Amino acid sequence: MRITAIETLVCHARMRNWVFVKVVTDQPGLIGWGEATLDGLSAKLNGMPGRGLIR
């Protein structure tokens, strides 16, 4: 099993942004989800400002 992608998803939640991380593997159907919220640092966790932002 190898990790093939790590994707971030930033969700706007009024006073802060929630940051979720999706880990994709080379095994069909095997993925993982995590939560990586740090107040005020969501753009840095996401890698690029505005990328993957849901409002």
Rank of each mutant, 00 (worst) to 15 (best):
R2T: 12
R2P: 02
R2A: 05
I3Q: 02
T4M: 04
T4C: 02
T4A: 02
A5K: 05
I6M: 06
E7N: 05
E7T: 02
E7F: 01
T8A: 01
L9H: 09
L9A: 11
H12Q: 14
A13R: 11
A13D: 09
A13Q: 09
A13W: 07
R14L: 06
M15T: 12
M15R: 11
M15L: 12
M15K: 15
R16Q: 06
N17H: 10
N17L: 12
W18M: 04
W18V: 04
V19E: 11
V21G: 05
V21K: 03
K22L: 03
K22I: 01
K22Y: 01
V23Y: 07
V23C: 14
T25K: 01
T25S: 05
D26F: 13
P28I: 07
G29R: 09
G29V: 10
L30W: 13
L30Y: 11
L30V: 15
I31F: 15
G32P: 11
W33I: 10
W33G: 07
G34Y: 02
E35P: 15
E35W: 14
T37V: 02
T37S: 01
D39S: 12
D39A: 15
D39G: 13
D39I: 15
L41Y: 14
S42T: 08
A43I: 08
K44H: 11
N46T: 00
G47W: 09
G47N: 09
M48K: 13
M48V: 14
P49C: 09
P49V: 06
R51M: 04
G52M: 05
G52K: 07
L53N: 02
